[in-house]
Nucleic acid binder design. Structure first.
Lengths: 217, 217
DNA sequence: AAATTACATACCGTCGGTTGGTATTATATA
DNA sequence: TATATAATACCAACCGACGGTATGTAATTT
């Protein structure tokens, strides 16, 4: 195959294929050869020219997955309008409304067979999402009086773990009924922590999303 | 090496070595050859005589790790004395007090480098611990009036995920201060869900445990 | 004595990754 | 603008280590 004048196109193709396969078959059950076979004529040398290792491919895949979400998170965090607790609510609304979710759902991954992907999302939530995006908002809420807590770091972590991992229907492949229950319990939990975030619109939306996910399986 | 008249001894030795290596180096970075090398004279054929695959070894390792804990959980669940919420409190006291915890801590694993182990503990919590041990207790609590909820399944899952995974200092390698924060937030969360489980004794104990874990690192 | 068990040894295909090369493109220079 | 040079994008052949298997054998059980 002739060399490509636009190598970023090749990188994109590799990541497209890798994403799909990692989701479908799991990271550990996807070989480099699998990726090559689905790329149509590209060689192993080409892949290792663009990526240092299989792990680096996974990193790029997850980075691309979370990049858009992180952009929106940063926007809300840095916005000048709204109290801390209002911003938190905006985040949850966004996370279940933005269309990219539906794209991801068409992959219909299942983290039960994907320990590596599960753990990398978990660690990303704990290491970056919570401290970089949620914590500043909680601190802002403490300053403006809309959030009251003595332990903002732990609160940020707990909220995002529950919302990003436990509530995510992909993670544990929950049914509509199970996800509905989870959302309601999440709402109660947040209320118990002094944050009244959930409204009916959000509950409905999550139920819809879960049904969509089930269809695509 | 001559064949052993007591093969269960060999199985135990394999599991001992595998446990240690899986904890120390991670499942994926431990090869069968590694296990053989640390067994002193045993061959690959021997291992594959007792286990069908590397995965099956991991399964046996985690089963052995959780077996003792599950026994105690079943005891509390089936006990005739105490309300549902009292039993829940007993479970948390137990989980941070029983000596086996300290044994595990001397291994000082780090789930950050062990996605497979992390995910298998996570799934075990969701698939077995929550539905088989916690849910019956919550149902009992609903019957005796000590627990009020509309979504017992989701509540059981959330409680155990937070307590077993998030609070576990191994999982995210938390410092004493971080763990303390987490315990306090956990207590608030439970209170918010209508369950007043935490007392000062438990907070102190967890702080001690975390310090112990840090020393052994 | 026959069958089963508990191993050892040698081997297999596949894996992630490397090496050395080549054609193409971008860049520097005159 | 033409040309030399350097950098890039890729290919093909190869490597050691991996998880797992086939076959054999001596000890034990039945």
């Amino acid at each position: 195959m002739a060399r490509n004048k636009h190598p970023e196109e090749t990188v994109r193709r590799i990541l497209d294929v890798a994403s799909r396969l990692f989701m479908e078959k799991g990271y550990e059950h996807t070989s480099i050869q699998d990726i090559i076979d689905h790329l149509g004529g590209l060689s192993k040398g080409a892949i290792y020219h663009h990526f240092r290792s299989k792990e680096e491919i996974l990193e790029a895949v997850t980075n691309r997955m979370t990049a858009e979400s992180n952009l929106l998170l940063a926007q809300i965090r840095d916005s000048k309008v709204g109290s801390g607790s209002e911003k938190l609510q905006r985040i949850f609304k966004m996370s279940i409304q933005r269309p990219v979710q539906e794209d991801i759902f068409t992959f219909a991954p299942d983290f039960r067979n994907n320990p590596k992907l599960l753990s990398s999302m978990l660690l990303d939530t704990v290491d970056h999402v919570a401290p970089d995006y949620i914590l500043p908002i909680i601190r802002q809420g403490m300053a403006d009086g809309s959030i009251r807590t003595e332990y903002p770091e732990a609160l940020a972590e707990l909220i995002m773990l529950v919302a990003n991992i436990w509530l995510n229907p992909m993670t544990f492949n929950s049914s509509v009924r199970e996800t509905y229950q989870k959302v309601m319990i999440f709402g109660q939990m947040m209320k118990g922590l002094g944050l009244d975030l959930l409204d009916q619109e959000m509950v409905d939306r999550i139920t819809d999303l879960t049904a969509l996910y089930q269809e695509h399986k």
